[in-house]
Simulated assay, not measured.
Amino acid sequence: MSRPGGSRPKIRSPRGLLLFGIFLLFAGIVAVVIAAAAPEVLPNGGAIGAGIFIFIIFGGLGLAAVIMGAKRIRWKREYVKVTGHEPWQ
């Protein structure tokens, strides 16, 4: 019997957390690009300042998620090697 949610990656899994972190980093970069492309929206560099602020938020969270995901992948490999089964079953 299949479980609801199927096999899509979740933040709970290391791979899902890694993908979520990459998505957040990408979202921060897109925010800076959009802000740089529209400097006339806020005069005196306000748009680029807002874009950089959004990048710091999304980029920081994304970087933290990428680091945690990478460490959890290593931890999961070691866990499976020691116990012989997946940790989240």
Rank of each mutant, 00 (worst) to 15 (best):
R12C: 13
F26W: 01
G69K: 03
N44V: 01
A36T: 00
M68Y: 10
K76L: 14
L42Q: 04
G45T: 06
P87L: 12
A47Y: 01
G21F: 00
S13D: 10
G84L: 03
L24H: 06
R74K: 15
L63N: 02
F53T: 12
F23M: 14
A27T: 12
P14G: 08
V41K: 11
A65V: 02
F23R: 12
A70D: 05
I54M: 09
E86C: 05
L25I: 14
R74Y: 02
H85L: 04
A64W: 07
A27G: 05
L25H: 03
R74P: 01
L17C: 15
W75M: 03
R72I: 00
A36N: 10
G51I: 03
R12Y: 09
R72P: 02
V41N: 11
L17F: 02
V33Q: 08
G46A: 04
L24E: 06
G16K: 10
Y79N: 08
R74A: 13
L24D: 01
P14W: 04
G46D: 04
V80N: 05
V32C: 07
I73P: 02
V30L: 14
V82F: 09
L18Y: 11
E40R: 14
G60D: 06
L61K: 02
L63Q: 03
I57P: 01
G62P: 04
K76H: 09
A37T: 00
G49T: 11
A35N: 03
K76E: 15
G21W: 00
G28R: 03
I29N: 07
K76S: 10
V82Q: 14
V32T: 08
I29S: 13
I29V: 15
A64E: 01
F26M: 10
P43Y: 05
G45M: 11
R74T: 06
G62I: 07
I22G: 11
I67Y: 12
F20E: 05
P39H: 04
G16N: 08
I56S: 14
A37W: 04
Y79I: 06
A36H: 03
G49D: 07
G49A: 15
L24R: 02
F20C: 13
I11P: 00
A50R: 05
I11H: 05
R15G: 11
F20M: 12
I67D: 00
L42E: 06
L42G: 02
I22S: 12
L25N: 13
V82A: 12
K71P: 02
V41A: 15
A37M: 08
I73A: 07
I48P: 04
P39V: 04
A35W: 01
K10M: 10
E78K: 15
E78F: 06
I48V: 14
L42T: 00
L19C: 09
F23H: 13
L19I: 14
F53V: 06
P39D: 06
N44W: 08
F53K: 02
A38W: 04
L24A: 13
F23P: 00
L17K: 14
I29E: 08
M68H: 05
G21D: 03
R15V: 10
G62A: 12
A37L: 12
